[in-house]
Simulated scan of single mutants.
Amino acid sequence: MAEEEKKKTLTYVEKLKQQALSQTNYGGEIPDKAARMEIRDCPNCSAGRAYRDGLTNCAYCGFRFMDSKLTDGIHIKKDNNS
């Protein structure tokens, strides 16, 4: 009986099932991570904003999150004319 099952040809649906079970992800295994959100609230109006480096002003109320002051650096020097 076992020899007859080996010789039996698979149907199209059975071949598809075998192929689906043997597939792997293109980018490799997906790591398990906890869900998270990368947002911060404006301290002035409590509006949520996406956290991105370099974002300095609230889009809703105009609150300044950070003030940058230019100082003399290694390669960049302040212009004394302005």
Results as ranks from 00 to 15, higher is better:
residue 62 G to P: 08
residue 40 R to N: 09
residue 51 Y to W: 06
residue 45 C to Y: 00
residue 40 R to Y: 04
residue 6 K to S: 03
residue 6 K to E: 09
residue 37 M to T: 13
residue 42 C to T: 01
residue 69 K to A: 09
residue 42 C to N: 02
residue 30 I to M: 12
residue 63 F to E: 10
residue 65 F to W: 11
residue 39 I to A: 00
residue 13 V to N: 10
residue 6 K to W: 07
residue 37 M to A: 13
residue 31 P to H: 08
residue 39 I to W: 00
residue 62 G to C: 06
residue 47 A to E: 01
residue 62 G to Q: 08
residue 7 K to Q: 06
residue 33 K to P: 05
residue 52 R to F: 03
residue 26 Y to N: 15
residue 64 R to N: 12
residue 42 C to P: 02
residue 69 K to T: 11
residue 48 G to M: 01
residue 54 G to D: 02
residue 37 M to R: 06
residue 78 K to D: 07
residue 64 R to F: 05
residue 50 A to E: 03
residue 23 Q to G: 08
residue 32 D to T: 14
residue 51 Y to G: 00
residue 33 K to V: 14
residue 28 G to S: 08
residue 47 A to H: 01
residue 21 L to F: 09
residue 69 K to S: 07
residue 72 D to T: 09
residue 81 N to H: 12
residue 43 P to L: 08
residue 64 R to Y: 05
residue 31 P to L: 12
residue 6 K to V: 09
residue 43 P to N: 02
residue 66 M to A: 15
residue 25 N to E: 14
residue 17 K to W: 11
residue 73 G to R: 13
residue 42 C to Y: 01
residue 77 K to P: 06
residue 43 P to H: 03
residue 72 D to S: 11
residue 68 S to F: 15
residue 66 M to Q: 15
residue 7 K to L: 09
residue 17 K to F: 15
residue 66 M to P: 11
residue 75 H to L: 14
residue 36 R to Y: 11
residue 82 S to G: 14
residue 77 K to E: 07
residue 71 T to K: 13
residue 8 K to D: 03
residue 69 K to P: 00
residue 3 E to I: 07
residue 51 Y to V: 00
residue 4 E to Y: 05
residue 42 C to S: 02
residue 22 S to Q: 05
residue 40 R to E: 04
residue 43 P to I: 10
residue 27 G to C: 07
residue 35 A to G: 02
residue 39 I to Y: 01
residue 49 R to Q: 04
residue 27 G to L: 07
residue 14 E to K: 10
residue 7 K to D: 04
residue 62 G to E: 07
residue 24 T to F: 12
residue 19 Q to P: 03
residue 24 T to S: 13
residue 78 K to T: 09
residue 41 D to I: 01
residue 20 A to L: 14
